[in-house]
Design a protein around this nucleic acid. Sequence first.
DNA 1: GTGGTCTAGACCACA
DNA 2: GTGGTCTAGACCACA
Lengths: 131, 131, 131, 131
Amino acid sequence: MWLDIDPRSSTPIYVQLVQRVKEAVARGFLRPGDRMPTVRELASLLMINPNTIAKAYQRLEQEGIIETMRSRGTFVAVGSVQINKEQGRKKLTELIHDMLVEAYYLGISNEELQSLFMNSLQDWENRKGEQ
Amino acid sequence: MWLDIDPRSSTPIYVQLVQRVKEAVARGFLRPGDRMPTVRELASLLMINPNTIAKAYQRLEQEGIIETMRSRGTFVAVGSVQINKEQGRKKLTELIHDMLVEAYYLGISNEELQSLFMNSLQDWENRKGEQ
Amino acid sequence: MWLDIDPRSSTPIYVQLVQRVKEAVARGFLRPGDRMPTVRELASLLMINPNTIAKAYQRLEQEGIIETMRSRGTFVAVGSVQINKEQGRKKLTELIHDMLVEAYYLGISNEELQSLFMNSLQDWENRKGEQ
Amino acid sequence: MWLDIDPRSSTPIYVQLVQRVKEAVARGFLRPGDRMPTVRELASLLMINPNTIAKAYQRLEQEGIIETMRSRGTFVAVGSVQINKEQGRKKLTELIHDMLVEAYYLGISNEELQSLFMNSLQDWENRKGEQ
DNA sequence: GTGGTCTAGACCACA
DNA sequence: GTGGTCTAGACCACA
């Protein structure tokens, strides 16, 4: 299942949920217009308190990833997601930075890192839209 | 200064400190054998609670980045850094993953992401050892 | 169509309906004595739960905007609308208040706000009675 | 006190709190850098559950009105508030719209409404920065 | 002491 | 049935 949560992880459950959903949308598992499970459904499915699910859904809505239609349920947003470009680029740069540091301590050369990156990119591309 | 901390950030200050030091070592700003500032020095310099500095130093010592020599002070570790390879590779993969998701929401194509990555890599290489 | 509803909005659908009808009356789209569509008609037209339409009609009747004539249907009220003046003025003041706060965060100067307001006023005046 | 909450109101308490704070900032009661009361302080002061206060603070932080500095407390944000201009203008137009409708039912002429608006604007300007 | 997370549970507006 | 609000209370990371 694309929505697995690790309750032992130090990252809060609701954050994990947000990440998983964003990822699923990015990969095409979830498509615009798709109906999300209800808060209660997901809560009982994952054995997590409904409030926690609700918090994740609220965040996702604030980020424009999903939309709530009064009493009809929650859906993957149709409109193009408006993301703060500046903030996003900053985050991207930081992630690359962290990679480089991590690679250094792993004794991975830049060449190796590069090919690792290219492979991941390829993988991602291939898996896009798969179930 | 290579050690700038953002108190507004959601990442804990001690984690930021750890990252900054690891980065400085990776880039060659800090070299094996270099003396680290004492906890108190750094605390007053950065205007941060000494407990926070101490916690960061503990972590760095656990990761083998720095070493405390009884009553002489703290130094950048000389021995080759022992990093858990498995854990490191996992982290690396996760970072790449996060990048891909972030790039998706920024509307950055894989080609763009690739060139962004290559540029960062080049940058990193060039700046190594610079002040 | 003067009666468009946004199911994504955070304002309840029945409130939106009430607002739209009041607006239509104020603009002269709907005139005293005009027949309103039945609850079922409107429900199927707007693809909205009939209970929601019924609730909106109830409110409109309470406010004296529309009248139900036993088994003949619902009509735009003929008599002068009885509105609680005190309540109305309070609401008006609040709306102006909200405008000022909103304008502040948009970086709109009072002069700009003023001209924006004057233009809206003019617009409203001109469109009155148009379809 | 600038922060009075009406527990009987139909607008949620946390929304009222958000509005009050935004208003206080807009009027200059709260200035950039000012320290906000802690969640617990405000909770006991207003006799409201701390979670409700926390929710309001989180919203304010997401909107960029306030900032949390790790364990130092919460402060009125210094940086210029980044508000979604488009969304804001839309809201502004809606508010003006509502005013016009309301004025119609109150039997207030456009001239009267205009002077009412101008007076409010003047009032606001004068009170700015007063305690 | 500070805010953040999570649970359990109640109640309510809306459709 | 759907999500939103609020309370009470516990626990925890951080500084």
